[in-house]
Amino acid sequence: MKRAHGFYSVPYVLWLALFVIAPLVLIVYQSFFNISGQFTFDNYKLYLSSGTYLRMTLNSVWYALLITALTLLISYPTAYWLSQTKHKQLWLLLIILPTWINLLLKAYAFIGIFSQGGSVNRFLQFFGFGAHQLLFTNTSFILVAAYIEIPFMILPIFNAIDELKPSLLNASKDLGATNWQTFSKVVFPLTLDGVKAGVQAVFIPSLSLFMLTRLIGGNKVITLGTAIEEHFLVTQNWGMGSTIGVVLIIAMIAIMFLTGERKKRGR
C-alpha cells in the first residue's frame, strides 16, 4: 500500500517540482542577472531609482484600480438583480458564455467597433458629436478591459448573494428594516466575500493584460504585463523582465493578502 502510494504520486509531485516551484525559483534567480548574463543587483537598483519604471508601475496599478472599480460598479447590481430573476441559473450561464469566446476575438471586435468609421463613431456623429479618436486611447483600454472582466466579477458576487438564506432577509424586514437598510446592513456585508473574490479575479489580470494594451490601448498604457512581455520578447532583457515579474508577484501577493484567500476564477 505504502509503495503504491509512492508510485502514483510521482507525476503530480514531478509537476509540482518542475512546473510550479522551479519556474518561480528561476524567475527570481533570473532577476539577478543582466542582459549579458552577469550576476548583479542592477535590475532592482534601476527599477527603484528610475522614474520610468516606478511611474509605469503606479500607472499600471492605477489603471487596474479604475478597471476594477468600473467592473464592480456594473457587476454588483447585475449580480443582485440576476439573483432575483426566474431561471437565474440559465441567465448566469448566459453571462458566463462570453468568457468562452477567445479573449483575442473580443479585443478584435472592439478594434472594429471603436475604429474611425466604426459603429460608436457613427452613433456619435448621428447625434452630432462628430467622430473621435476612440481606438488607442486610455479610455478604450479601460472600457474593453472592464468588458472582458465583468463576468469574472459577476460570478463570485452572484454566488455570494445566491447563498444568502431568504430567512435572513425576512428576519431583517420583520425587525423593521426598510429595503435599503436590509441591503446595506444585511445583504452587502454578507456578500463582501464575493466582492473580495471578484476584486482579486479582476485586479490581478488587469495588471498584466498585455495584449489589450497593444491592440486597444495602442501602447499608450504600459501595464506591468506589457513591460514584462516587452523585456522578454522584444528587447530580450530577461533580467529586467524577471525583476518586473517579481514586482508583479509581490503585488499579487499583496492583493491576495488584502482581500483574503483568492477563490478560483470560476467560469
Binding site: 509540482l16 518542475l18 510550479v20 518561480l24
Partner: peptide, 27 residues
C-alpha cells in the same frame, strides 16, 4: 501546503506563467 502549491498556477497572471516557463525551457 500542497493545496497552496497546487493553486499557485491558478492565481498567477498569465504573463508570469509564460515568462517563467520560458526561462525554465531555455534553462
Amino acid at each position: 501546503t500542497l493545496l497552496s502549491l497546487n493553486n499557485i498556477l491558478m492565481v498567477s497572471p498569465d504573463v508570469i506563467i509564460g515568462a517563467s516557463f520560458l526561462i525554465f525551457f531555455t534553462f
